[in-house]
């Protein structure tokens, strides 16, 4: 007669089996959580090499930066540009605001689309996507400032400019370029964040935005007029396109935006 398996063995076996389920469960839990602690690094190999990567800390220098600032009075190779039309947006002996794009830049569709993209990234937070000065950051700042129990944390916000105001529309493109590059009033300059060509693209796009809000039906190219509502189409059917140079201060963008 065979004796049954001793209970003790069964209990021990069952307990061990259950205990073995704990590590996988623990791992599954760890996977589901985020943790502020440094990751466990088991095999170090060549993971941390004695080289300084971008923006790393270097304790040998007083300011702790591995990336050193540019030495004062030097210019990086390829960065020298003596064309003040290009870098500052001024032309002529008396450094007036430029009214045209600098040499080498053409306001074709690619350029304008680039300007649109860059405007949407860098300018729309304050100025809004259509340039009316109603961007999200602007709205938030105005809310903080006009808080009923006093400005939150001493916010003192100057409302972002509506780029379609007459005074801004009258500004030559060089002045727009200069304002966005080097700042104006409480707005900081973006020359460090945006390369020069892109800043000209943005300035061109600003001009296009301004044009878009102040255009007459005659400005629509003949081949696009059917897309306008039937009443306006009837009005402009026989009207000639207006003189572009008169409308936007002498820019030489020949219908580039409407192509």
């Amino acid at each position: 007669m065979s004796s049954p398996i001793p209970r003790a063995l069964l209990y021990v076996g069952g307990t061990v089996a259950c205990l073995l389920l704990i590590p996988p469960a623990a791992i599954a839990y760890i996977r589901s959580q985020s943790s502020p602690g440094r990751p466990v690094h088991l095999i170090w190999d060549m993971d941390n090499q004695a080289k300084y990567k971008a923006q790393e800390e270097n304790p040998l220098f007083a300011d702790g930066r591995a990336a050193r600032p540019i030495v004062a009075g030097t210019v990086a190779m390829g960065e020298a540009n003596l064309d003040t039309h290009f870098t500052e947006g001024v032309t002529g002996p008396s450094a007036e605001w430029a009214t045209t794009l600098p040499a080498g830049l053409v306001a074709d569709e690619t350029f304008m689309r680039r300007g649109q993209e860059r405007f949407n990234i860098y300018c729309s937070p304050c100025h809004g996507f259509a340039g009316f000065g109603d961007g999200m950051v602007n709205r938030r700042a105005m809310t903080l400032m006009n808080n009923s129990s006093g400005s939150v944390d001493n916010t003192s916000w100057t409302q972002a400019k509506n780029l379609h105001e007459d005074q801004i529309r009258a500004q030559p493109i060089g002045q727009i370029y200069h304002s966005l590059s080097y700042g104006i009033r409480t707005m900081a300059g973006y020359s460090a964040q945006i390369p020069t060509e892109d800043r000209w693209a943005i300035a061109s796009y600003v001009k296009a935005l301004q044009r878009s809000q102040n255009a007459a039906p005659q400005d629509i190219p003949p081949d696009r007029r059917t897309q306008v509502g039937s009443e306006e189409a009837a009005t402009v059917a026989s009207a000639a396109p207006s003189d572009q140079a008169n409308r936007d201060g002498g820019h030489d963008r020949q219908g580039a935006v409407n192509q």
Partner: peptide
Amino acid sequence: CMNCHTQIRKDS
């Protein structure tokens, strides 16, 4: 950061 925070919540 200071593009905005010279003004927005500057004492926060």
